[in-house]
Simulated assay, not measured.
Amino acid sequence: MYQNILVINLMQIGDLMLTTPVLGALRKAYPQARLTLLADTRWRDLVECNPHLDACLFMDKKGADKGLANLWKFIRKVRAQKFDLVINLHRNERASAVAAFSGAKYIVGYSKPLFSLLFDQTLQNPSIAHHVGWGPGGIFPPHKYVPGWEHQVHAHLNVLRQTLGFEPEDGGLEMALSAENQQKADNLWQEHFAAEDKVIAFNIGASWETKRWLDGYFAQCADRLLAKGYKIAFFGGPMDLAIVERCISQMKHKDSKDLHIFTGKVSLAVLAGLLQKCCLFLTTDSGPMHIGVAMNLPVITMFGASPVPGFYPYDGRSVLLKSPEECHPCGIHKCPRAGEENLACMKNIPVAAAMHYVEDLLEKFKAKPAYELPAHKGDYQCRVIEISKGEF
Rank of each mutant, 00 (worst) to 15 (best):
Q3V: 06
Q3Y: 08
I13E: 08
G14V: 11
L18S: 05
V22C: 01
L23A: 04
A25F: 03
D40Q: 10
D45Q: 10
P51G: 00
H52P: 05
D54R: 03
D54F: 05
D54T: 04
A55P: 06
M59K: 11
D60F: 10
K61A: 00
G63D: 03
A69R: 15
R76V: 12
V78G: 14
F83I: 02
D84S: 01
D84K: 02
V86L: 03
N88W: 01
A97V: 12
A99S: 02
G103Y: 03
A104I: 08
K105G: 14
Y106R: 13
G109R: 12
K112V: 14
N125W: 01
F140K: 14
P147Y: 06
H151R: 01
E167D: 09
P168T: 00
L173I: 00
E180T: 13
E180N: 14
Q182H: 13
Q183H: 13
E191N: 13
S207H: 04
T210G: 00
K211F: 00
D215W: 12
Y217T: 03
A219H: 08
Q220H: 07
C221T: 13
A222R: 09
L226T: 08
G229V: 00
Y230I: 02
K231R: 15
F235T: 14
G237N: 00
D240C: 07
E245P: 05
K252E: 15
H253I: 01
K257P: 13
D258V: 05
L259W: 05
T263I: 00
G264K: 02
K265Q: 09
V266E: 04
S267G: 09
C278R: 07
C279N: 01
L280P: 06
F281G: 07
F281T: 01
L282R: 02
P288R: 07
P288D: 15
V293P: 07
L297M: 03
P298L: 05
P298K: 06
Y312N: 11
D315A: 10
R317L: 13
S318T: 03
L321V: 02
P324E: 05
G331V: 07
C335I: 11
R337M: 14
E340Q: 12
N342S: 15
C345A: 09
K347N: 13
K347M: 12
N348Y: 07
P350I: 07
D360A: 15
L361S: 06
L361P: 03
L361N: 04
K368Y: 06
P369W: 12
Y371A: 06
Q381H: 13
K389C: 08
G390K: 11
E391W: 14
